[in-house]
Simulated scan of single mutants.
Amino acid sequence: MKITGMIRGLAHQYQEPLQYFIKINDNRQEINSWLDAKVKIEYEGHIQCIYCGRVIKKTFNHGSCFPCFQKLPENDLCIVKPDLCHYDKGTCRDSEFGDSHCMQPHFVYLAVSSDLKVGLTRECNHLKRWGDQGAVQAIPIAKLPTRKLAGELEMRLAERFPDKTNWRKMLKGDTPEIDLLQFRKEAYSMVQEEYGDYFLHEESLTSLRYPIRQEMEKVTTFNLDKQPVIEDVLIGIKGQYLMFSSGVLNVKKYAGYHVTITLLDTM
């Protein structure tokens, strides 16, 4: 099997384990069945902006050309720092995008990926968000009416709980036993007065399992700019990473790159 085109990242469906797809051009190719097979990935030497199609030499923010990085709402600073949302100031890069993405209910959640972390996501997007982060457990702890309010709560909780994932530790599967329900109680006690009306109490834990044949003892990253051909056995998929026997590839990092992927054989 051989597919050629522009990478757009990994997608998944929630099941046990997660079902993964690689997005090439406008198509999705199922890849759980590639486990234990030798896979060859060849970077063809050219890149396009995933938004406007412009041919570029480098990408910004996972697939953008520089003009799209500067002007599109998907690339605004408030996407990574939601508490800085400026929709209500009338300076949103695209008010329709703001209406559909930012002025919508958001969950603030606790999750275990590499360690305990706090994060936020749109209510309709939580399973995708947790899978993209490689979380093994997660629970929504509050529901807020806008992204900005959720970002402000996240910032308050980040004074106590980490808001970053150690991706190397996440890929090794070296996650500690963490009682999310107990930490939820601690989070509530921190912000009861300000955010008590938004707390969620009935939600249960969600567990996520990934298609992984073996955990990695050492994590080495592949760089398509320096190593344009990867040929190795696929041993797992987690978050946005393809895990090979000798290294990992962050697929989302190379969104916009044109590649040829060949399934060579099964073990």
Rank of each mutant, 00 (worst) to 15 (best):
V191K: 02
D99A: 11
A11F: 12
I50W: 00
Y198K: 04
T206Q: 11
F222R: 08
P17T: 10
A138R: 02
I24L: 11
K169W: 08
F21W: 10
N75L: 05
Q214M: 07
D94K: 02
G5E: 09
C49E: 08
L35N: 09
E96A: 09
P145A: 12
W167D: 10
V251L: 10
I24K: 04
L264P: 00
T146Y: 06
F183E: 15
H126D: 10
Q29V: 15
K143C: 14
D83Q: 10
E177Q: 10
L181M: 15
L224K: 04
A255D: 07
F21N: 04
K57C: 00
F69L: 13
L144S: 01
E30Y: 05
H86Q: 14
P176M: 15
R129C: 07
Q70P: 01
P211L: 06
F66L: 15
I41Y: 01
G119E: 05
C92N: 04
E44D: 14
Y254F: 14
W130M: 04
F244Q: 03
S204E: 15
I3A: 05
G9S: 05
C49V: 11
L77R: 06
T146N: 03
V80F: 07
Y188K: 13
L127R: 03
F199Y: 10
Q214R: 14
L208D: 03
G247T: 03
H126W: 07
G131T: 12
R28W: 12
E186A: 07
L116E: 11
L224W: 06
I141F: 03
H62P: 03
E123I: 00
C124L: 09
Y109D: 05
S113L: 05
Y195E: 08
D83L: 13
K89M: 10
N166F: 09
F97N: 00
A142E: 04
M155D: 13
I139Y: 01
K226M: 14
K117W: 07
P176A: 15
D197R: 12
V112K: 08
Y195H: 02
R213K: 13
A255N: 15
Y20S: 05
E30V: 15
R147Q: 05
K253Q: 15
D179P: 11
D225T: 09
L171T: 05
P17D: 12
I50Y: 00
D132S: 02
Y43G: 01
V219A: 08
H258K: 03
M170T: 04
V80N: 11
A150I: 00
E42F: 01
G256K: 01
A138M: 03
P145I: 07
C49P: 09
P105T: 09
Q48Y: 10
P73M: 01
Q133D: 02
E215M: 12
H12M: 14
V259H: 03
R156N: 12
P228G: 09
I56G: 12
Y257Q: 03
Y109F: 15
E194A: 10
L110A: 15
S189D: 14
A150F: 04
E74Y: 04
L181P: 08
N166A: 03
G236E: 06
H201S: 08
L242F: 09
C124H: 14
A111V: 01
Y109H: 06
Y241F: 12
L263W: 13
L18R: 04
D225I: 06
H46E: 15
M243D: 02
D83I: 12
D265F: 12
I24M: 13
S114F: 05
I139H: 11
M6F: 06
D94G: 01
A138G: 10
L264I: 14
Y210C: 02
L242E: 07
T262C: 11
R122S: 09
K185I: 08
L149E: 13
